[in-house]
Amino acid sequence: MAARDSQFPKLDVREATKVYHTRSGDLLAIDRCSLAVEEGEIVSIVGPSGSGKTTLLWSMSGLHHLTSGEIALDGQRVDGPHPDISMVFQDANLLPWRTIVANIRFPFEIKGAKPDTAWIDQLMHRVGLEGFGQRMPRELSGGMQQRVALVRALSFKPSVLLMDEPFGALDAFTREEMNHLIEEIYLDTRTTIVLVTHSIDEAIFLSDRIVVMSARPGRIANIHRVPFERPRSLEIMGTKEVFDLTHTIKSEIVGDQISKARNRKNAANLSKAS
């Protein structure tokens, strides 16, 4: 990776804890999660549902306030949405009453800034969306909508891109295409990326490191380094290293689930016996 000239990690999560106050009582979503994302790194977060992946990501974006702990960008505490951090949501999340162009200009409208049209055109070209600017979102396929969301997120040149299960709703082929696109754009811009995903394949293909979370409460269970050179090809996905890594991560996720279920069952049996 690029030479470090800063003593701070790009994005530093320190002892992040988040409690949701719900009607049925307090819910500890994430518990003392610490993670340092370096500049120009791609980090994936995987884990069973309920492990607080999304909560952790939303906290990094400043959309959630932590109950305790803190998030720092270049050593500066993040207290709310930050102009250098951009978010790609599940299901594209386009505004259906706006044309594609108007959707992409939306961040600039909110910030009261002039859209960087040259950069936007370049991004549109890159993701293969030229000529679609005047269309409405509903006229585009799911994959194309997600590309628009990607262009929108990168339009104001953020230094950190957060992605919340961005391709979960897409079919396997479109998903692979999007993964290549992300890598391509990454190699161009060296944007720091944190990605929440359900797909271990996707995590391995894209990431420098993979964070595995365990559920209830959400904790960081393990962090794996993915050692392949970029640009990565689909070929690496067939290697033994990837196979082993996939297996390890899977058993960490599934094993966590199974052992928790077993504990619950034992506890139930005990209470029945007594």
């Binding site: 939303w58 949405p81 949501f89 299901d91 505004l95 009453w97 909110i110």
Partner: peptide
Amino acid sequence: SAKIALARSYGASTLQIFWKIRAPMAL
């Protein structure tokens, strides 16, 4: 909530969220 979060992620104010998200959705 996802659209409101989108606007907030760009630093939108309550008033901006009203005019740019809530009002068009209610139209």
